[in-house]
Design a protein around this nucleic acid. Sequence first.
DNA 1: TTGCATACTACCCGAGTGGGTAGTAATGGA
DNA 2: TCCATTACTACCCACTCGGGTAGTATGCAA
Lengths: 223, 223
Amino acid sequence: MVKDELDRSPLSVVLVEDNRILREGWVTTLKLEPDIAVAGDYSSCEQLLASPVLHVADVILLDIELPGKSGIEAIPLILSLRPQAIIIMVTMHEDDQHLFDAICAGAIGYLVKMSSALDLAGAIREAVAGGSPMTPNVARRVIDYFHPKSRYLPRQNELSEQDLEVLNHLGQGKSYAAIAKVMFLSVHGVRYHIRQIYEKLQVSSRGEAVAEALEQRLIRPPT
Amino acid sequence: MVKDELDRSPLSVVLVEDNRILREGWVTTLKLEPDIAVAGDYSSCEQLLASPVLHVADVILLDIELPGKSGIEAIPLILSLRPQAIIIMVTMHEDDQHLFDAICAGAIGYLVKMSSALDLAGAIREAVAGGSPMTPNVARRVIDYFHPKSRYLPRQNELSEQDLEVLNHLGQGKSYAAIAKVMFLSVHGVRYHIRQIYEKLQVSSRGEAVAEALEQRLIRPPT
DNA sequence: TTGCATACTACCCGAGTGGGTAGTAATGGA
DNA sequence: TCCATTACTACCCACTCGGGTAGTATGCAA
């Protein structure tokens, strides 16, 4: 927690957005909030990275499409200078590529600009309170990442329960022998299932199989 | 979309919760909403699975800790009978294990019971509109799943840029030869980096390396 | 200049892995 | 009853992978 509930000093918020109209509108809106102080607003990441304000920022609202460095490229640079900063993307891009690039880089929230009720102040407070503000559709796509792909739909690659168990062990880097041991099978039995897996997944090595299985969410990603 | 915006017929909502007081409270609350119809309320998953109501349910609010089958175990069974159902967990369990078990199984929302402002009706509407209702802390933990672990903190396992690139290719199931080709190295050069990786990650096979790298979010999980 | 670390290239060798093939016990129809 | 499928066990063989070891070019620092 950068600020706790008893801390009455306003949150130091920074905006990076190249559209001047939008940016000034947001600054104006946020200035009405007593618990939020706009410490700076910039039209490019380079300006933010060069500013001393970065080193006191609590929350950074970041556009993606910007002149010069993109917002996503800037995230690691920002976090290396100010690790405790809370970065919330505010963007027009609703596609998975930008979304996952941003959160993998370290963004904590992701708001779509044209969303009907874009509540910047609310999102800032939610993020500071330990949440992750997201537009509803964005939240759904993040959750969908974990969902099994088409497991409850007409199944094509009918992996048996045993196949799946072997696949899970493969994903944990176990050798044939190790898998045989825990599954009470001979090494040949393990190979039997692995051959089934390779054929059904259309691959020809353990690495490819694990990659494909993760892709299709056939095995649970490590938690 | 199970119901579109023009559809004025109420949403068919089902509750599974073993605490009678809580359940009846929720039923009463939801009955006040004109766009929501409580089609059934049950104290166990077995009851729901045996009920014909399941086959017309739009949204299912599901507790985790229940007599008999747990809510999480019930998810695949429910979805195999009613794939279009939207499942929202309503539970006391805030730990990662239950959370990720639930969303990996197919839950679309995850609400913590004792949350200060538990808005069931709002959550139901958000889920039906294509969102994923989550308590703020839950959302943060889902997002944290994608965040690099301690990459911006004192780094111990100093993997070089080249090491990381090799690691990424390993994660995609590529062979030494294939990696050598795309990185313009000899196979020996690839082996050099892989040895570095194994030593720094304290592992001794490609499988373990990939598992460990995913665990530490050193490489991006597949999208 | 020497010394040292980094980023490779290179060879040997044994264990692990994958493809081909075949045999067997159990199960379930037709 | 016969036939087919499933779930193994089993052997052969070539290739990949991982550990040990060593050589080399580059750069950096004392």
